Amino acid sequence: MPKLETRAINTDLTASDDETRTVSGTAVVFNRDSEDLGGFIEQVDPHAFDDVDLRDVFMLFNHDYDSVLCRTIANTLELTLDDAGLHFKASLPDTSIGHDTYENVRNGNIQGCSFGFTVNEDKWDTSSTVYRRDILKIGELYEITLTPIPAYKDTDVSVAQRFIKQKTSDLDKLKSELELMTI
């Protein structure tokens, strides 16, 4: 079973000016290098989502399934793909987490997004000191997340930060395997 991975980006999150509690932004960007993610950088291919089923995706707060904000099958989350990335429009619920999240987006306290996914196909280049990973095919997209603390910067105005959550031991194992491949 592929390992669940997450990434975060800073994005142009916007909040509606009416009482609908609608937020929108970009959850995944294509053809943009990440910052150094602990010995490697990566990029998501524009065709990585070509065969991904987007019919049942959650929007969460901070990857917490106890903080569900909306969901595509409930028609409260709309996802669209274009050449730049995966975009969303979300109607936040009339709950305390929905109100708090909406106000934090509106006030600029929450500016980042993240996504939880599996990888079916990737390509590694280990020819330099900082390895490069190209994500060619996403297996499943489980969730997108609104988050106040994205960790990696990008120069694009609509995307400014991304992060990877991976256990140190898993990363060390990967580095060891890559070192063995280069010997």
Score class of each variant (00 low, 15 high):
1 M>H: 11
6 T>I: 12
8 A>Y: 07
12 D>I: 03
18 D>N: 11
18 D>H: 09
18 D>A: 08
19 E>K: 12
22 T>Y: 09
24 S>A: 10
25 G>F: 07
27 A>S: 15
29 V>S: 15
32 R>E: 09
32 R>A: 06
35 E>M: 00
41 I>V: 12
44 V>M: 09
45 D>H: 01
46 P>L: 06
48 A>I: 04
53 D>M: 02
54 L>T: 05
57 V>C: 00
60 L>H: 03
61 F>V: 01
61 F>E: 00
64 D>V: 05
67 S>T: 02
67 S>D: 06
69 L>R: 03
71 R>T: 03
78 E>L: 15
83 D>E: 01
85 G>W: 03
88 F>W: 08
91 S>Q: 07
92 L>T: 13
95 T>S: 13
96 S>N: 13
96 S>R: 11
97 I>T: 05
98 G>S: 13
99 H>S: 09
100 D>C: 08
101 T>R: 05
103 E>V: 09
107 N>V: 15
108 G>V: 15
108 G>W: 12
115 F>Y: 00
118 T>M: 00
119 V>L: 12
119 V>N: 11
122 D>L: 07
122 D>S: 10
125 D>K: 11
131 Y>I: 02
133 R>H: 08
134 D>W: 08
137 K>A: 01
137 K>H: 02
145 T>D: 04
150 P>E: 12
155 T>D: 10
157 V>Y: 09
157 V>A: 15
159 V>E: 11
167 K>N: 00
170 D>R: 09
170 D>Q: 13
179 E>V: 09
180 L>N: 04
180 L>M: 06
183 I>D: 08
183 I>S: 09
